[in-house]
């Protein structure tokens, strides 16, 4: 495969620009959410973490779903670039997953009085996160890039099938285990429609934040993808 180094640099540069735009947007979300949005009635200030948490969840799920979709495509097209993308998307997914796993318990501590209350969505995130940790562990132990791509695709596709089962498990698990401390209604952190209806003034920053996180996802993945292509190209050049 022949890649023009200049074209790859262009991809990385474009990724940087998108990421920069994303970060500026994120700053805007912070200012808007903290400075110009009233506190929510039931949850108070803790509600504001939702503006980061819910969009991060959306970005993580998109990232991981794309690893599976691209895995399927890989079996069909056998194109090494698909694996470069899958790895990029998975690693970006891990970053958003980390954001989720940090903000979720902070919110839970304030609202439920417990860092970890086996909230279905957080548990789901944790299990998915662990699955992708395994994905990277396997990748790092394989040296042949073709094998790494193929095995990565296998795990990605298996993971897609696992997702509905984990979903089912975490919800059924919760229905079997009453929550430890419940001061307030058990509204999941990332469900805007859980409250009867979110007033527009609270909803607007959330929607903006979803857009910003999508941009951040695209920016991160573009950079990672460019770096991956570069690495692949260098390996091939070493090969002569």
């Amino acid at each position: 495969m022949n890649h023009d180094p200049a074209a790859i640099e262009k991809i990385i540069r474009r990724g940087r620009i998108i990421t920069l735009a994303g970060f500026i947007g994120l700053l805007g979300v912070y200012i808007l959410a903290l400075g110009y949005t009233p506190a929510e009635k039931m949850q108070g200030l803790a509600f504001k973490i939702l503006y980061v948490h819910a969009p991060a969840a959306w970005a993580m799920e998109t990232a991981f779903v794309l690893v599976g979709v691209v895995g399927l495509l890989y079996f069909w097209l056998q194109d090494a670039r698909l694996d470069v993308f899958a790895e990029a998307s998975a690693s970006v997914g891990m970053v958003f997953g980390a954001v989720l796993l940090i903000t979720g318990p902070i919110w839970g501590r304030t609202i439920w009085g417990a860092w970890w209350a086996w909230d279905p969505r957080l548990t789901f995130t944790l299990l998915l996160y662990l699955m992708f940790a395994g994905y990277f562990a396997l990748r790092s132990a394989l040296r042949d890039p073709v094998e790494r791509a193929r095995f990565g695709a296998v795990i990605g596709v298996m993971g897609m099938l696992l997702v509905p089962f984990i979903h089912l498990t975490v919800y059924l698990f919760r229905s079997q285990h009453p929550m430890p401390v419940l001061g307030r209604p058990p509204c999941p952190p990332d469900a805007p429609n859980c409250a009867p209806s979110l007033p527009w003034v609270l909803l607007k920053p959330l929607l903006i934040s979803f857009a910003v996180f999508t941009i951040l996802y695209i920016g991160f993945v573009t950079i990672r993808y460019g770096i991956g292509l570069k690495r692949m190209m260098m390996e091939e050049r070493d090969a002569g």
Binding site: R143, D144, P145, M234, E235, E236, D238, A239, G240
Partner: peptide, 11 residues
């Protein structure tokens, strides 16, 4: 015919 085999950067 035209066999080529690479292992990463090794041909």
């Amino acid at each position: 015919t035209g066999l080529e085999r690479r292992f990463g950067s090794v041909v």
